[in-house]
């Protein structure tokens, strides 16, 4: 079974040289620590930046330089800044090759739910709906089951959707699955996880 960092490392294998990529909050943010040698990717932050650098050292924090999670960050030699309309023009326009984001539920047809739980505090979708509708490829990184052991890979999402049929690949603590015609296809299993275990933890239809 993979831990958070191993899931992030596996997700980093999805990156290709020259890509512009948007990383969501949580485990997806860790992906930037595992970018493979020889691969150059440019990270987009949807509040208006391409070429996002690491956190600043103490004392170098700049209130005018934050990421989409409102954390202080730094710029790189190739960094560019732009306004929010331009930022989402490049997202909506398909210029961002891939988004890696977390999820509450994914359905076997690629439906994604990650922004609200009815009856609970609703904070908003932020840029998630724009990202999943606009980027070239959507990769979800999440635990395979919730804290009660129930599968988060479902036949149909029960929560309000962030996007309809938008997910391409799902990386969980148990393995990697692709959304294909008719359901999910197992691409690989995590270290120490058998295919039978992965199948047993999955509600969604698994196709061969």
């Amino acid at each position: 079974m993979w831990d958070r960092n191993q899931m992030a490392a596996r997700a980093a294998q999805e990156l290709q040289d020259g890509w512009y990529v948007n990383l969501g909050i949580g485990i997806p943010t860790l992906v930037s620590n595992y970018i493979p040698e020889g691969i150059e990717v440019t990270l987009q932050s949807e509040n208006g930046m391409l070429g996002m650098g690491p956190f600043p050292v103490e004392g170098d924090e700049d209130a005018d330089l934050i990421n989409a999670g409102k954390q202080t960050i730094t710029e790189l030699p190739q960094t560019s800044y732009f306004d929010s309309a331009q930022s989402f023009a490049m997202i909506r326009g398909g210029k961002i090759a891939m988004a890696i984001l977390g999820a509450m539920e994914v359905a076997e047809n690629g439906d994604l739910a990650n922004w609200m739980i009815p009856g609970k505090l609703v904070k908003g979708m932020g840029g998630a709906m724009d990202l999943v509708a606009g980027v070239g490829r959507v990769v979800v990184v999440m635990d395979h089951t919730n804290k009660h052991g129930v599968s988060k890979l479902l036949k149909d999402c029960t929560l309000p959707l962030t996007g309809k049929a938008v997910v391409d690949r799902i990386i969980t603590n148990l393995g990697v699955l692709d959304v294909v015609k008719g359901g999910l296809k197992i691409i690989e299993t995590a270290d120490g996880v058998t295919e039978a275990e992965l199948r047993a933890a999955t509600e969604a239809t698994i196709v061969d």
């Binding site: 949807e46 306004d83 929010s84 930022s87 989402f88 709906m129 724009d130 606009g134």
Partner: peptide, 13 residues
């Protein structure tokens, strides 16, 4: 009224 972030920016633009 929730607007997706890019939709809000584009509505303004």
């Amino acid at each position: 009224e929730f607007n997706p972030q890019g939709t809000l920016a584009e509505r303004m633009r």
